[in-house]
Amino acid sequence: MRILARFWKALGSMNLTILLCLLLAADVVWGYAAIRWRTALFIPLNDLGLFAWMQTYGRHNLTYTGWFFALLVLLALLALNTASCTLERVRHVLAARSSLSVVRLAVKLGPHVMHAAVLVILLGYLASYLYTEVVVGTVLLPGRSYTLPGDAGVITFVEFRHEVYQGSRLKVFQGEVIRPEAAMMLSAKGRQREAILGFNQPVRLNGYSIHLSDFAPKKPGGMRLNKRIDLHIRKDPGVVLYLTGIGMFCLGLGLYMLDWRMYREVRQ
């Protein structure tokens, strides 16, 4: 147990943080070069699970994907490092809480809220890449429906309600769709509601998020392509976690900035 406790304490070393961050910076630069050279190897990461990708694209192309495995290890170490360091320091802060006001205590916890947020974000990503259910290649024509997995609901593509560009400033887009929108009917448990699906405007139904991946035609009435929308459907348990982590980080940042402004002179 002593060895474990010593190991855990050593994991919280700031020297280790510095080393890991440097290694991570170097690793992601390697990753940038690898993705630029072989983008097609990494596109499936968007929809395959982490293990499925590692077992196929990952391990059969280690020259280009090795950085990703290193990234996982380094992030795991960083998470352990952050957890150990944060827990230890929060323990110290809480031990001294009797001598601090509520506000002072809150701002002192600011950096640790940020560090905890990093852990929550990393956990969110892990959950996302391990457990997300993805449906790719779903195409709907006007009037057509798709039943979500497990009968979670039915989505129907009703019609397009595009915004077409009529101005003269964007010459390339004249007469073309500039803001694609598809009117959808969402049905679940006997209830129906209409929703508008756009490029940055997903719709949600019973835990599934439905994103617009592509559409045709780009120019109403002008092209020979049939009307359709391509959907990317996901049920991602990690979303709540990493959105929460983002919120926590912003909260911690705010507290830290408050600490800096309120108590900067005292500290200095």
Binding site: R6, A10, S13, N15, L16, L19, L77, N81, E88
Partner: peptide, 14 residues
């Protein structure tokens, strides 16, 4: 809390 010794850091890295 100051950083733990470099030796411990090396252990973790190893």
């Amino acid at each position: 809390m100051r950083g733990v010794s470099v030796r411990s850091t090396a252990e973790i890295l190893l």
